[in-house]
């Protein structure tokens, strides 16, 4: 099948690649851009492992075509840590709070939570659960993912106690 040339920016780095129009954005990132941190858990839009930020908004990279990212900016998990590998505050919170086990769902959760923490509104328990329930994790029972994001929100001054944690 013929390929289409596209240009996209991933984590601030411009990429010019040729993709088949039927290839997903996730496949494009993984295979054409060599960024395998974006994982595929279902390829039908349920699990959220493939979550990336497209023009700042969280999207399922398995449900978009690569060509839809032509001319647009994508952020993936590889863009979170500093160039020397130093973890960002959210990644650190996941590390300290055991927010991952096998780590397969982790990139998706990190991108989803990154988006949430960049929004102007503060995060409370209800919003935390609501937003994070977009993605699936099979290992952690979510307890330590919620705890990690809560800790990061607190460290970033984004947390608000509305209802008691229960």
């Amino acid at each position: 099948m013929s390929k289409m040339p596209i240009r996209l920016t991933v984590n601030g780095v411009p990429h010019e690649v040729a993709v088949e129009p039927r290839r997903s954005l996730a496949d494009t990132l993984r295979d054409e851009c060599g960024l395998t941190g974006t994982h595929l858990g279902c390829e039908h839009g349920v699990c959220g492992a493939c979550t990336v930020l497209l023009e700042g908004e969280p999207v399922r990279a398995c449900l978009l075509f690569g060509v839809q990212a032509d001319g647009r900016a994508v952020r993936t998990v590889e863009g979170l840590a500093a160039a020397d590998g130093t973890l960002d505050p959210l990644q650190r919170a996941f590390w300290e709070n055991h927010g991952l086990q096998c780590g397969f769902c982790t990139p998706g959760f990190l991108m989803l939570a990154t988006w949430m923490l960049e929004q102007p509104e503060p995060v409370d328990e209800a919003r935390l659960r609501h937003v994070l329930s977009s993605n699936l994790c099979r290992c952690t029972g979510y307890q330590n993912i919620l705890k990690s994001v809560r800790a990061a929100a607190q460290a970033l001054g984004k947390w608000t106690e509305v209802a008691p944690v229960r």
């Binding site: 993984r30 960024l35 395998t36 941190g37 974006t38 994982h39 595929l40 993936t76 998990v77 590889e78 979170l80 840590a81 590998g85 973890l87 990644q91 996941f94 590390w95 300290e96 055991h98 991952l100 780590g103 397969f104 982790t106 990139p107 990190l110």
Partner: peptide, 18 residues
């Protein structure tokens, strides 16, 4: 905290498909 984590958190894990 686990030594396994930093690479996985950076998206640098190596799963079979990677």
């Amino acid at each position: 905290p686990r030594t396994e984590d930093p690479a996985l958190l950076r998206g640098e894990g190596a799963f079979t498909a990677d």
